[in-house]
């Protein structure tokens, strides 16, 4: 067995080098001067690290403003989805009402509709409402997530009914039972929806690209795309672009490392990545 594991380890090390190389090259590129990035792309590391690039990149595009926009959109959608989906999931799992199962099936069917085709009619609707280039357009259409509702329902179904019945005997209503018993119990489901939605919203380009028109409303992804197009055609700002990518990638990597176990567990369970 020993030599086999030796081979495994060698293969793993080779693959690690391949997987980490883009990160290393990114950080190296972010620390070169723009001139050096352009003329010495074969060098992985800068001759003199330019730590000022991060501040300079912020002057080219308003990274603090875009980070703020990304954070507001991402957290608003994430928390909104959790509350709305948990409420609905609880009702689908526990409360009896006419048409419940039919509505649930319709919700499930909408799971397959990709945003990549939905954005065309949505854009026209939002334009009619006057929501284009507002927070409303970035947040409200994303609040309903049938997948999150499904996840919460499946989770609530597994919780023993006895716990709720003791709440009802104490005279608690459905809202209080939901709020002070069921939602706290649903910690794993909350964490799953949180990390999947958070990463998807943070990383998404199409929605903020199409639904915003002025740079004050841009998210980081739109800003990076803009900077990239500029870097290709006119000014040599490759190093700033790399610095911008580093800055934009720090929040999701932190989130990822905090929630790694939950993230891995949720992918293993559902086979979906949001």
């Amino acid at each position: 067995m020993k030599p086999r594991h030796g081979l495994t380890l060698i293969l793993l090390i080779i693959l690690t080098v391949i997987f980490l190389f883009p990160f290393v090259y990114l950080i190296g590129g972010a620390l070169k001067t723009n001139q050096e990035a352009l003329t010495q792309p074969a060098a992985i590391f800068p001759s003199v690290p330019q730590w000022g690039n991060f501040a300079e990149a912020m002057k080219v595009i308003d990274i603090p403003r875009m980070t703020f926009n990304s954070l507001v959109m991402t957290f608003a959608v994430t928390f909104g989805q959790i509350i709305i989906a948990a409420l609905a999931g609880y009702a689908f799992a526990r409360l009896r009402f006419a048409g419940r199962d039919l509505v649930f099936v319709i919700f499930l069917a909408t799971l397959i509709i990709p945003f990549e085709l939905l954005f065309v009619p949505l854009y026209l609707m939002l334009a009619k409402l006057g929501w284009i280039n507002t927070w409303w357009a970035l947040i409200v259409p994303s609040l309903a997530n049938p997948f999150a509702i499904f996840l919460f329902r499946q989770f609530f179904v597994t919780i023993p009914r006895e716990l709720e019945e003791s709440m009802y005997l104490d005279g608690a209503g459905y809202l209080r039972t939901f709020w002070s018993l069921m939602l706290p119990l649903a910690g794993p489901a909350v964490a799953t929806v949180f990390i999947l939605t958070w990463l998807a919203e943070w990383s998404g380009l199409l929605k903020p690209l199409v639904f915003t028109t002025s740079s004050e409303m841009w998210t980081l992804q739109v800003g990076l795309n803009f900077l990239n197009r500029g870097a290709q055609v006119s000014t040599p700002t490759i190093a700033y672009l790399m610095a911008g990518i580093v800055l934009a990638s720090i929040p999701p990597i932190i989130m990822f490392l905090i929630f790694q176990r939950r993230f891995v567990a949720s992918i293993a369970q559902t086979g979906l990545k949001g």
Binding site: P22, Y25, L26, L199, W202, S203, G204, L205, Q221, L224, N225, N228, L241, M242, I245, A248, S249, P252, I253, M255, F256
Partner: peptide, 10 residues
Amino acid sequence: AISFVAAGIL
């Protein structure tokens, strides 16, 4: 954890 925009540019 890296966005497609970041990875695509890189």
